[in-house]
Simulated assay, not measured.
Amino acid sequence: MSGISAIGGNMGTVQQIMQMRAELIDRSALLRELHSTRPDSVPGIVGSPGAMQPAGTSFAATLESAMDGVNATQVKSNRITEAYERGEVTDIAAVMLARQESGVAFEATLQVRNKLLNAYQEIMRMGV
């Protein structure tokens, strides 16, 4: 059984969960604030100001823009990691955040690629 019981159960567990929830909300607000005040935000990445595309943009241009954004995220991650290794950057949180952003962007790109391949294969299997 889990640590959370039915209504009227262990109130200490519920209070702990509520406390963890409040901490997560605080951290989320702090991360949003840090992300919005970064001078080096990259256009084309989800959440950055330049992420919105005009309505008439072609699929190829949108895909290219997304790939450029992922590439820029990986380049930034590599640059800040190398700076940390040289001792120029001492904020390990910034380094880890950049690496996580890069990893998430790459994983999302792989998922989109897999979906596109599946859609292409489905189209090729269709009878004419």
Score class of each variant (00 low, 15 high):
Val75Thr: 03
Val75Ile: 07
Val75Ser: 00
Val75Pro: 00
Lys76Asn: 07
Ser77Phe: 03
Ser77Arg: 02
Ser77Ala: 14
Asn78Asp: 09
Asn78Glu: 06
Arg79His: 06
Arg79Asp: 05
Arg79Asn: 04
Arg79Tyr: 04
Ile80Ala: 00
Ile80Glu: 01
Ile80Arg: 01
Ile80Trp: 01
Ile80Leu: 01
Thr81Ser: 06
Thr81Asp: 06
Thr81Cys: 02
Thr81Ala: 05
Thr81Pro: 00
Thr81Val: 06
Glu82His: 15
Glu82Asp: 15
Glu82Met: 15
Ala83Val: 09
Tyr84Gln: 02
Tyr84Ala: 02
Tyr84Arg: 04
Tyr84Pro: 03
Glu85Cys: 04
Glu85Asn: 13
Arg86Leu: 05
Arg86Lys: 05
Arg86Thr: 06
Gly87Tyr: 09
Gly87Leu: 02
Gly87Glu: 14
Gly87Val: 02
Glu88Met: 15
Val89His: 01
Val89Ser: 01
Val89Asp: 04
Val89Asn: 03
Val89Met: 03
Val89Arg: 04
Thr90Val: 08
Thr90Leu: 00
Asp91Glu: 15
Asp91Met: 14
Asp91Cys: 12
Ile92Gln: 05
Ile92Ser: 05
Ile92Thr: 12
Ile92Trp: 02
Ile92Leu: 12
Ala93Val: 10
Ala93Lys: 14
Ala93Arg: 15
Ala93Leu: 13
Ala93Ser: 14
Ala94Asp: 12
Ala94Leu: 15
Ala94Trp: 12
Ala94Tyr: 13
Val95Arg: 01
Val95Thr: 10
Val95Ala: 00
Met96Ile: 00
Met96Cys: 02
Met96Ala: 04
Met96Gln: 08
Met96Trp: 02
Leu97Arg: 08
Leu97Ala: 08
Ala98Phe: 01
Ala98Thr: 11
Ala98Gly: 01
Arg99Met: 05
Arg99Glu: 04
Arg99Asn: 06
Gln100Thr: 11
Gln100Phe: 04
Gln100Lys: 10
Gln100Cys: 03
Glu101Ser: 07
Glu101Phe: 02
Ser102Val: 13
Ser102Gln: 03
Ser102Met: 06
Gly103Tyr: 07
Gly103Trp: 07
Gly103Thr: 08
Val104Arg: 03
Val104Met: 02
Val104Cys: 01
Val104His: 03
Val104Thr: 10
Val104Leu: 03
Val104Lys: 00
Ala105Arg: 07
Ala105Trp: 06
Ala105Leu: 08
Ala105Phe: 05
Ala105Cys: 05
Phe106His: 06
Phe106Glu: 08
Phe106Gly: 00
Phe106Ala: 02
Glu107Arg: 11
Ala108Arg: 07
Ala108Gly: 06
Thr109Pro: 12
Thr109Phe: 10
Leu110Gly: 13
Leu110Ser: 13
Gln111Met: 09
Gln111Pro: 00
Val112Asn: 10
Val112Pro: 13
Val112Ala: 11
Val112Trp: 08
Val112Met: 09
Val112Arg: 08
Arg113Met: 13
Arg113His: 08
Arg113Ser: 10
Arg113Leu: 11
Asn114Ile: 15
Asn114His: 14
Asn114Val: 15
Asn114Met: 14
Asn114Glu: 14
Lys115Thr: 14
Lys115Val: 12
Lys115Gly: 15
Lys115Arg: 13
Lys115Trp: 11
Lys115Glu: 14
Leu116Asp: 09
Leu116Asn: 06
Leu116Pro: 00
Leu117His: 08
Leu117Ile: 10
Leu117Val: 09
Asn118Leu: 11
Asn118Gly: 11
Asn118Ala: 09
Asn118Asp: 11
Asn118Lys: 09
Asn118Ile: 12
Ala119Phe: 11
Ala119Ile: 08
Ala119Val: 09
Ala119Thr: 13
Ala119Met: 11
